[in-house]
């Protein structure tokens, strides 16, 4: 099962290496790992998507918490969260296919951010499943390249998805 782990870490050099090294050394599988600043300049947030059963995840949480500069670890599994992935995707778009592609972009609430002679680049964000679905519908046109951020997430404060 996929778990989204959120770790607050000290904003210090070497912390990413600590965390990534621990995952490699203990043979845990990382799906994605995102690091970014937070509201507090002393702290960064790592959002890590890990696949494993409950026992593996218990170890992941404990081993993360054991790393000295890791301040707090949360596992969002089973909790209401907002989880988002951001993707830039360059799609092969000869003039006769363009309008078709643009309507797909619209359907997925994406944004065209660059147009060249042969390709359009689209920015799209959302839950992972939506991103995957968009990649699938683009495949027939030909995908030149994809860049994704990996998942970031936050627990919901309210109950309703707006």
């Amino acid at each position: 099962m996929k778990h989204i782990i959120s770790a607050l870490v000290e904003n210090k050099p070497g912390v990413l290496a600590h965390v990534a090294g621990m995952f490699a050394a203990r043979a845990f599988n990382i799906d994605s790992l995102v690091v970014g600043r937070t509201e507090d300049p002393q702290l960064s947030r790592m959002t890590i998507v890990v696949v494993g059963d409950d026992r593996v995840l218990e170890q992941v949480r404990k081993q993360l918490a054991r790393i000295v500069p890791v301040v707090k670890v949360q596992d969002f599994v089973g909790k209401p969260v907002v989880a988002r992935d951001l993707m830039l995707i360059a799609i092969s778009a000869p003039p006769e296919k363009r309008s078709e592609i643009l309507s797909l972009v619209e359907m997925f609430k994406g944004k065209v951010v660059d147009i060249g002679q042969k390709f359009v680049m689209v920015e799209i964000s959302g839950p992972e499943a939506k991103i995957e679905a968009f990649i699938n519908v683009c495949k027939p046109y030909g995908i030149k390249s994809v860049a994704r951020t990996g998942t970031i997430a936050m627990p919901r404060y309210g109950k309703i998805e707006p």
């Binding site: 050099p13 600590h18 090294g21 621990m22 050394a25 000295v68």
Partner: peptide, 10 residues
């Protein structure tokens, strides 16, 4: 030495 220490830093 990171994997063989409890903690390290420069």
């Amino acid at each position: 030495t990171r994997p063989v220490t409890k903690y390290n830093c420069i």
